[in-house]
Design a protein around this nucleic acid. Structure first.
Lengths: 340, 340
DNA sequence: TCGTAGAATGGAACCGATTCCAGAATTTTG
DNA sequence: CAAAATTCTGGAATCGGTTCCATTCTACGA
């Protein structure tokens, strides 16, 4: 009987000693290697069970080169849309034996860059990310240096090897805009992030298409495409709503924008669905319960998260990189009435 | 000039070769060890810069025994309260060089247990968790076997070495209940999770105290203390609201419960603030913007997350385990009017 | 019966760092 | 100026596994 000291953790060495076999044999049994006799398997398994041995994932990772860990970088987990995506993604990754390291970039390119660097040092097997911007050369360089598969969320970066889960905002926004135009609106405001990310460009393309099809002109002065955060939307809602010919309708892109705009409108005493027609892109939980009920362009965050995980697992299995397109759906509710 | 092949990663070996020194010297320079001559430091730093060397965190972890990783186990990251906590916590941990592995337990004790086990195999330096239940012996055993510091969120487990961030729900709930009792309500329903977690017990204690101080009797049949999920609240709201003498007021504990209850009330056509006085424990983003405006017992999720990180860092530095108490605040809004 | 293919096992190198220990170089002390 | 103390540096062991290679043993066909 070997001198097993139970002060530290039980290692493969302890198991080998107890079973009276070589380290390599224990390893083979644990990993299900075919070159193992039934007798050997039984002896090792007995020792493993008796000692309660569990292989150290750190040591395994160092040797095998795979950490079974995926980095997940988003702007802000407290954004309910991202939270739903993250949850579905984590569940799916976990089902396949992967863990998720979560990092918030807080909307800062430097933080985002640092996060990528750190994930590289941690040797993660892959990264799922929603970039702050698509046109940052430093982030791009960092990503290339990762040499690990990448899945982008609603982003398109030229010259980058990556899978992506892309939302087709175009159709949803087109329907929403058409809905407003049909009701007679032309002074339509749009508040969302900058056009250096796919989602904004794609949304604007639906917006423009609707105007073009209706033979109407977009009033560029009513657009505020500068940031996804609530603060930006708050400030610009106030500014836009103070203009001389006031916009009669407002579309906000993203939950932060919607949140900031609603707060500003509330403070200004502007009632949506009455004084102003309002459409939100992306939904809140309980959109259908709270009043005023808000017209929205919906997307299935849970499906997006699961799909991101699938694309990642696919590439990790040696499969090809892919781009999945998720759809959006416009629902007219009370908030998009009135305003004229 | 050594034969540096740039096919793989740059290791400490490459740096040592280029600088013409021993591995140990490079290691000493990198870790800021005092026994290093200025000349040595300069040579090594030149080589590090020239090669772009970054130490492998995996290898460092294996040797040093510290992964600089904290596990974070919660029921559901898509719960906005947890999302805010997680974000603040991650930011704080990141500022101190730690990364966060996020795991959802989905309200299942088995999943929670598996998560703890996995975190142990990953050799995380600590775990921050909001347990599904406090009375599961299997989870308790698993936690003890972790032999890593633990910070509990709103939980008290007897005979467990752990720090904790505890919310003082008592006072907030007391005020809320008093508010309802003062208005003349006695048939007050309460829907939330089971009493095998601290938060429910502490909330019930405030609830009971208010009744006692008012000299009124609690109607036990109007309590539904069985689950934090929306589905449970949905079902029991329907049942409770169908009782012969209908409750005139309803308190829901937690965001899931509130969500399920609101949906049920909406379907049943019961208007809060008019047909029923309603108070929610924990807030949603934009509680003050949506209508009907909901009376609530608020707690600062951001502060809770940051505090959890602090407690963890404290213990990792060798400090003592502690328990921090966060306060709650009741705000009466429109939803708690009417009902009688 | 012997040579050889195949199965099973042990030994050792390796993944990429840290750290202890011994020895060389340098400085201080008597 | 020799001995001792101090400062640096290199070598080797170690963390806990995986995997290649060589060796032994068994079974098979010629």
């Amino acid at each position: 009987m070997p001198e097993e000291t139970f002060t530290g953790n039980i290692t493969i060495r302890d198991v080998a000693a107890r079973a009276g076999v070589a380290l390599s044999s224990v390893s083979r049994v644990m990993s299900g290697h075919p070159d193992v006799s039934p007798a050997m398997r039984a002896r090792v398994e007995e020792a493993v069970a008796a000692l309660g041995y569990e292989p150290d994932l750190l040591a395994q990772s160092l040797r095998s080169g795979s950490t079974r860990t995926i980095g997940f970088i988003i702007r802000d987990i407290s954004n309910p849309l991202y939270a739903l995506i993250a949850r579905a993604c984590e569940q799916e990754l976990r089902r396949h034996g992967y863990s998720m390291i979560l990092m918030n970039s807080d909307g800062s390119i430097e933080t985002e860059s640092k996060n990528f660097l750190l994930l590289r040092r941690r040797r993660v097997d892959g990264v799922i990310a929603s970039l702050v911007a698509e046109d940052s050369p430093s982030v791009k360089k960092t990503i290339v240096s990762l040499r690990a598969p990448l899945v982008l969320l609603d982003r398109e970066v030229k010259g980058l090897q990556a899978s992506a889960v892309i939302t087709d905002h175009h159709d949803g926004v087109y329907e929403a805009t058409k809905h407003l135009l049909d009701a007679g609106h032309t002074k339509i405001s749009f508040i969302t992030g900058a056009e250096n990310v796919y989602s904004t460009r794609n949304r604007m393309s639906g917006f423009k298409q609707a105007f073009a099809d209706a033979g109407k002109e977009i009033n560029e002065a009513l657009l505020a495409l500068g940031g996804f955060d609530a603060e930006y939307a708050f400030v610009h809602t106030r500014t836009l709503m103070a203009k001389k010919p006031r916009p009669t309708a407002l579309i906000t892109g993203g939950i932060g924008s919607t949140s900031g705009a609603l707060r500003a409108l509330n403070e200004m005493g502007i009632k949506i669905g009455k004084d102003l027609a309002f459409v939100a892109l992306d939904e809140w939980p309980l959109f259908d319960v709270f009043s005023p009920q808000i017209s929205s362009v919906y997307r299935d965050a849970k499906a997006i998260g699961a799909e991101a995980a699938h694309l990642m697992l696919e590439v990790l299995k040696g499969g090809p990189q892919k781009e999945s397109v998720m759809e959006t759906k416009f629902t007219a509710r009370f908030s998009s009435e009135g305003g004229l």
